Simulated scan of single mutants.
Amino acid sequence: MFQGSKITKSILAAGVLAATTAVASAQTPNRIGQFNDWSAISYQGANGKICYAVSVPTSNAPASVNHGDNFFVVTQRRGSNVSYEPQFIAGYTLKESSKVTVNIDGKDFSFFSKANTAWTENAAEDPAIVAAMRAGSKMNIKATSRRGTNTSYEYSLSGITAALKAIEDCK
């Protein structure tokens, strides 16, 4: 279950996401609910309500580097026709043109990176990734920093199904 600081980081994620998605008129984020290791968050964007299921890693490596705040997010944005879009947001700049690997219970998915964010290379895979998250128990992410440091993160998938259900009807 989230510790207080992890819940705060989840709320902070909404603000980070607003900046990342260039939503100029983002309002204060509202927590819809906490579901084990995942939070459901919403805020009013320029084109309608935006909802997220968001979590922070349960572990990271190597321990000797500053990872910053890292998040995995699944976005629901009905007004923009975005449904369950997964993305990884790093607390540092990712290596330019590098791939980020998301592994869910042994199945790899490839993400492309830009600045500190990574999205699926093929948006048609988004439903398969979300289905794997719903069925899975843990997710591992491997990324490379701009400095060339190989990093990895483990996320618990406990609560993802409930968090996704909470943002299902984001309007």
Rank of each mutant, 00 (worst) to 15 (best):
T28A: 09
N66D: 15
S113W: 02
V73M: 03
N122P: 00
P62E: 08
E85Y: 14
W38L: 01
K138C: 12
F72M: 03
D105T: 07
M133D: 02
Q76F: 14
S80M: 11
N103C: 09
H67V: 05
S110N: 13
A63Q: 11
A63P: 15
A26P: 15
F112T: 07
F71E: 00
D69W: 14
K138L: 07
K138D: 12
F111N: 01
G106M: 08
N70C: 10
V65R: 09
S42R: 10
V100R: 01
A123Q: 11
A132N: 07
A123E: 10
F109E: 04
N81D: 11
G106C: 05
A131G: 06
E96A: 05
N81L: 15
N81Q: 14
N116H: 09
V102Q: 04
Q44T: 14
K114E: 06
K138E: 07
M139K: 11
V65Y: 08
K99T: 09
S80L: 13
R31Q: 13
V102Y: 13
E96K: 08
A118L: 10
D108V: 04
T120L: 08
N47H: 06
T117P: 05
G68M: 00
N70M: 04
P57R: 01
E121M: 13
A115Q: 08
N30G: 07
K49F: 13
P86K: 01
S97R: 14
A61K: 09
G33A: 05
T101M: 06
D108N: 12
A135S: 15
E125F: 15
F88E: 01
S59G: 12
I41A: 00
V102S: 04
S113Q: 09
D126M: 04
A123H: 07
I129E: 01
E121C: 08
K107G: 13
I32R: 05
N47W: 06
F35I: 00
V73H: 02
K95L: 14
A128H: 12
P29I: 05
S59T: 09
L94T: 00
T93N: 09
G136L: 07
A132D: 01
S98I: 11
S110H: 14
N116T: 12
K107F: 14
F112G: 10
A40S: 04
R31N: 15
N36I: 04
D126P: 14
A128S: 08
K95Q: 08
F35D: 00
N66S: 04
E85L: 02
T120Q: 11
T120W: 08
N66C: 13
S113A: 08
P29M: 05
R77H: 13
R78G: 08
A135W: 10
W119P: 07
G45W: 02
S83W: 06
I89A: 02
E121Y: 13
D105R: 15
S98H: 03
S42Y: 05
Y43S: 15
V65H: 05
N81T: 00
Q44V: 10
G106E: 15
V82H: 07
F111K: 03
G91L: 01
Y84V: 12
K138P: 03
W119N: 10
V54I: 12
N60M: 15
M133Y: 11
A90L: 02
I41G: 02
V73T: 02
E85M: 15
T93F: 11
G106F: 11
V74F: 02
N81Y: 15
